[in-house]
Simulated scan of single mutants.
Amino acid sequence: MVADVSEGCEVITADAGDRSGGLLGPQAVDGREHVSVTAPEPALGFSTLYDHWRGREKGNLFSYSLGSPSEHWSFYQMLGTPIVYMMWEIDFARWSWNDFPLYHTVYETFSAMAHLDPEFVYHQALGRLWAVLAQRLAQQPLLPIDVRDVEKPLRLGLDHIRRSYGQLMDRHNVSLGGLERAVQRYVTAAQRFHKKIISRTDYSDLELRQINDQMVGVERSFVDPNGLLVDEQNRNAVFGTDPDHEYNGVLFPDVVETLLQVSEQSEQPDLWQCVRRALAAAIFVVNGAAASLADPSHFVRPWPETEPDQTLTRN
């Protein structure tokens, strides 16, 4: 059987280790955290898996640093499919290792796993979470996705650029204003969309298909088919991979990487042109995500423009 993976609503993958954690696209947060609250986990001594997580981790349980360490890379980079990459990691409060010491060695065998997790309770816990989340995605007529969750990584990416390169950009008369406005447009569109879909429950099958397609289409809007300036094999202009470390992720990767290059050679006009081009691409895809949430029967821009948008350069 041949499946059209471009029509998938979400990709769920799993890994191993010894502490809960997760890498995920923004629209996967709502579903995964809600499932963890309801997933029973008596074998680990907790009523739910979420209770176990919070017993070990007081900070963020989820990360938007997707990177490209596994097969999920092709889905979110090539297709813009929402992804969940679930794992057990090391209990850093107990161990001082940087990573699971048997990782990708010939010693990572069934016997080793049977010694570390004799009853395979950690493996079962992750498997149950995966199964419950997959079942929920498959069976709920309206996908458990909240498009408002995309705001957080967009803001985090903006804040990082502003904090790390804001003064450099000011000195060269390059503005983040266009990207800031695009992010705000998305936030406004997402809030309007969410308010609309919760206002009723009597959707027809055709309306449900339309709403689900719009929600999944948000992250597809982030894919630039031309590829990124710094790495043509990557196409996601919002969620990227650190060129120096494939296990680390970068928000607005082209903008960040071109700014990093220009910070080392700031008097190179061609490099600043690359920064402007990367900013323009980021603005375009975020605006596209906002537009994807508009009522498809409306063929006008979903936001008013009273004057030309000075996106890249200050007067």
Rank of each mutant, 00 (worst) to 15 (best):
E307K: 10
S47P: 11
K58R: 03
Q268S: 10
T109M: 13
C9T: 12
W97V: 08
Y103V: 04
M1K: 15
A39P: 01
Q191P: 00
D295T: 07
D231K: 13
A43C: 06
D99N: 05
V230G: 09
H245E: 14
W272I: 04
K195E: 12
L176E: 13
S199Q: 15
L102H: 08
T201D: 05
S263T: 02
V132W: 07
R163T: 08
S6R: 14
P42G: 06
H115S: 11
K152E: 15
L260R: 02
S221I: 08
F100S: 00
H172P: 01
R185N: 12
V174H: 09
H298L: 14
V5L: 12
T313I: 15
H123K: 14
Q265W: 08
D270T: 12
S47M: 10
L158V: 04
A131V: 11
L271A: 13
V250L: 11
N212F: 05
Y107S: 15
P243I: 06
V285N: 04
A39L: 15
L66G: 12
V147T: 07
Y103M: 05
W95K: 14
E246Y: 09
D205M: 01
R220V: 11
R148K: 09
A290G: 10
L49P: 11
L79S: 03
A43S: 14
P141M: 08
D213Y: 00
R200G: 10
G177Y: 11
R277G: 00
Y64I: 03
E57T: 12
A131W: 10
W303C: 11
K58G: 13
L44A: 07
D242W: 07
R56C: 08
K195H: 09
R192F: 02
E232M: 09
E180L: 09
K196M: 13
L176K: 00
W303E: 07
Y64M: 12
L293N: 03
S263L: 02
E71F: 05
L126V: 06
D231F: 03
L126T: 10
Y85W: 12
T38K: 10
T188Y: 04
I83L: 08
R136F: 03
A28G: 00
Y76P: 06
